[in-house]
Simulated scan of single mutants.
Amino acid sequence: MESIKVKEETKKKLTEIAGMLEKKLGRRVSYDDVIKYLIERKFKDRKLAEELFGIAKGENLYEELLKGRKEDDEKSSP
């Protein structure tokens, strides 16, 4: 199992979403469940947007994200 660091404010928001999911599903959920839910929801919304508007066809968004993160890291390094 991996660990990730999140700010306290982010953890509070994840906890709020966990509460909503627990109410909806009628069972306890983990932070992993919450993150999976958010990822699935995002991809579902993105897929719908792509179907409706043809957004980002032919682009590798994951590679673009990694490139952008690398550039951000390089800028923030002393």
Rank of each mutant, 00 (worst) to 15 (best):
M1W: 06
M1P: 08
M1G: 10
M1E: 12
M1A: 14
M1I: 07
E2I: 04
E2T: 12
S3Y: 14
S3R: 14
S3E: 14
I4E: 05
I4V: 10
I4R: 06
K5Q: 07
V6I: 05
V6Y: 04
V6A: 02
V6T: 01
K7G: 05
E8C: 05
E8I: 06
E9H: 04
E9G: 03
T10S: 06
T10Y: 04
K12G: 11
K12V: 09
K13R: 15
K13I: 12
K13S: 11
L14K: 00
L14I: 02
E16K: 01
E16H: 04
I17K: 10
A18T: 05
G19P: 04
G19H: 03
G19S: 04
M20A: 08
E22D: 04
K23P: 01
K24S: 11
K24D: 09
K24E: 12
K24M: 10
L25G: 02
G26L: 01
G26H: 00
G26K: 03
G26S: 03
R27F: 09
R27M: 11
R27D: 10
R27Y: 09
R27T: 10
R28N: 11
R28Y: 12
R28W: 09
V29K: 03
V29P: 04
S30N: 06
S30K: 07
Y31A: 01
Y31V: 10
Y31F: 12
Y31C: 04
D32C: 05
D33L: 00
V34Y: 02
V34P: 00
V34G: 08
V34I: 08
V34W: 05
I35T: 03
L38F: 08
I39D: 08
I39C: 05
R41N: 12
K42C: 08
K42W: 12
F43N: 11
F43D: 01
F43G: 01
F43Y: 07
K44P: 01
D45L: 09
R46M: 13
K47D: 11
K47R: 09
K47T: 13
A49G: 01
E50H: 15
E50P: 08
E51K: 14
E51L: 13
L52M: 11
L52Y: 09
F53S: 10
F53P: 00
F53L: 12
G54Y: 07
I55M: 13
I55E: 11
A56E: 09
A56P: 00
K57Y: 12
K57H: 12
K57M: 12
G58L: 03
E59V: 14
N60H: 10
N60V: 03
Y62H: 11
Y62S: 09
E63R: 03
E63H: 01
E63P: 02
E63I: 02
E64Q: 10
L65A: 05
L66P: 03
K67Y: 08
G68F: 10
G68Y: 13
G68T: 13
R69M: 15
R69K: 15
R69W: 15
K70N: 07
K70Y: 07
E71I: 14
D72M: 15
D72L: 15
D72N: 15
D72S: 09
D72G: 07
D72Y: 15
D72A: 15
D72W: 15
D73A: 15
E74H: 04
E74S: 08
E74M: 10
K75N: 15
K75E: 12
K75A: 14
S76D: 06
S76Q: 08
S76P: 00
S77H: 01
S77E: 03
S77L: 04
S77D: 01
P78A: 13
P78R: 09
